[in-house]
């Protein structure tokens, strides 16, 4: 029980830290700092996943959320403006308020619903149960997640691979007229 207490304490502290970091990211005016703080945020989410016994997701989160995301955002910031400017023109107060209201309402609804769900760690999901019991016999993989990802639900993963593939094609297609590709590479 003692260990679990420490676990819960750490977990909750991390959650609170997450909220604080999120606010900092939004409020920081210097976007480069914001990107770095977002990286820290990603590490903490990864930790939380790990504590929830989802090491696969934790690995993905850390590699993507900290590695690639930060790298791409840093480049994006360096290509655009570094310091946030005052939003000019229209006053977005009412619009922002209504959007916030809708979001908050949705969040409340979703939380009310999720509160009903079975407690964490109770293996009551039938399909999940099947995977856990039969994966070694069916596929012969120690990593059940890997087996689900590429065997039981391989078609989904193919789809997700295509999503990335498509997204990069989109980037190339949309920004194909960027002049930088052809004229002088340095500078």
């Amino acid at each position: 029980m003692e260990a679990l207490g420490w676990f819960n304490l750490l977990f909750n502290v991390l959650l609170i830290l997450l909220v604080v970091l999120a606010v900092i990211v939004v409020e920081l005016k210097d976007l480069l700092y914001a990107v770095i703080v977002a990286g820290v945020y990603g590490v903490i989410i990864g930790l939380l996943y790990f504590m929830l016994q989802a090491p696969d997701i934790a690995l993905t989160q850390i590699v993507v959320g900290v590695g690639i995301q930060t790298a791409i955002l840093v480049v994006a910031v360096s290509k655009t403006l570094r310091v946030e400017e005052k939003a000019s023109g229209k006053d977005l107060g009412l619009k922002a308020a209504s959007i916030a209201a809708v979001v908050i309402l949705t969040v409340i609804l979703v939380f009310t619903v999720v509160y009903d769900f079975p407690a964490f760690g109770q293996p009551v999901e039938r399909v999940g149960q099947y995977y856990v019991e039969n994966v070694l016999k069916d596929v012969g993989a120690w990593n059940a997640v890997g087996a689900i990802v590429w065997d039981y639900r391989g078609y989904d993963t193919l789809g997700e691979t295509l999503v990335l593939f498509t997204a990069v094609i989109v980037v190339l297609a949309v920004f194909k007229h960027a002049p930088g590709k052809r004229d002088e590479p340095n500078s």
Binding site: L162, T166, A167, I169, V170, A173, V174, K176
Partner: peptide
């Protein structure tokens, strides 16, 4: 997959 390619195609004449 469908939506992402659709975004790209809408913005194709960039």
């Amino acid at each position: 997959v469908m939506s992402i390619s659709a975004y790209g195609l809408v913005a194709f004449r960039s």
